[in-house]
């Protein structure tokens, strides 16, 4: 219990850092990727503008958005005109926003950090992204603290789940009452679970962190696994699944090895990794 309180304090402490303002001699920074937005906020940076903030608050949830960040519209349809009038000094983007690089570079230099690449584990890349951004902004010390806290947090949380991690884990997302997709080793969730000492039950290759949807009956191929359902869950699935004979017959459901996690950004940075680990641990402790 003591360790847990310490960990939570540590965690809370890192969030409570005051926001460092961007360097005074330059304009602000703009961020066109959610994982990098999370990373920046975790470093205590307050970007002047970022993308799709309405949905960010629903899906990403933490780090919480400070007031006064300007919304640049959808990730796939950036409002270039608005961004141009803001005259940013630097723009952060990833391979997901690379399509816009040519255009963005007309306004300001673009720094690209890619976390999600086909078949590659994302955690280290998220670490590298944080280091890179911190290096640009002179926040190396803060980044190192955050990174080691996160690594420590994952390891410690894993230790506390020593009993649960004897079983493999299957991390899924529900499309509707009939389909799910699984997160493999090249996803942040899979990578984080592995760092917590879990074996990922979904061994087949996935493309970009999650497999294409498969039928519910495939859950039967993972009889020993713990099933972690990551939100959002479509309301209709949430309503029908508990009544479904097939769902209830799945070993993980029958034996109470299923946990439901709130919304977490599946394409997030280190803060998303941390949120996943924390919520997973909380839920697993609760059902145990």
């Amino acid at each position: 219990m003591r360790t847990r309180r310490n960990l939570l304090q540590l965690f809370a402490g890192s969030l409570a850092l005051p926001f460092a303002s961007a360097r005074a001699d330059e304009g602000g920074i703009a961020i066109v990727d959610w994982a990098l937005l999370e990373t920046a906020l975790a470093l205590g940076l307050k970007p002047m503008a970022a993308v799709e903030l309405v949905l960010y608050q629903k899906i990403v949830a933490e780090p919480a958005l400070p007031d006064g960040i300007i919304d640049l519209g959808l990730r796939g349809a950036l409002n270039f005109e608005l961004l141009a009038t803001l005259q940013p000094s630097l723009i952060y983007g990833s391979n997901y926003s690379a399509w816009a690089n040519d255009t963005l570079m007309r306004m300001a230099p673009v720094r690209e950090f890619s976390i999600y690449l086909r078949g590659q584990a994302p955690f280290e890349k998220a670490v590298a992204a944080m280091r890179g951004m911190a290096g640009d902004q002179g926040l190396q010390a803060r980044a190192e603290t955050y990174i080691s806290e996160t690594e420590h947090f994952l390891a410690a949380t894993g230790e506390r789940l020593a009993r649960q991690r004897q079983r493999p884990i299957l991390i899924i997302n529900l499309g509707d009452a009939r389909h799910f997709r699984a997160f493999g080793s090249d996803s942040m969730f899979g990578d984080v679970a592995a760092r917590m000492g879990f074996v990922n039950s979904w061994a087949t290759r996935t493309a970009y962190s999650a497999a294409a949807p498969v039928g519910l009956e495939s859950l039967a191929d993972h009889p020993d696994a713990i099933i972690a359902v990551v939100g959002p869950v479509p309301p209709e699935a949430a309503r029908t699944l508990p009544q479904s004979a097939l769902w209830r017959a799945m070993p993980a459901v029958r034996e109470g090895r299923t946990v439901w996690l709130p919304n977490i950004n599946p394409f997030g940075g280190l803060p998303a990794a941390r949120r996943f680990a924390r919520l997973l641990a909380e839920e697993l402790k609760r059902v145990a």
Partner: peptide, 25 residues
Amino acid sequence: ILANGEYMMSMFIWGGGSLEQQSWA
């Protein structure tokens, strides 16, 4: 779909048309 990331997967599944079943309902 683009404006609402939450249930993107559900909408892709409908668009594709899948006969998967998990009950007789």
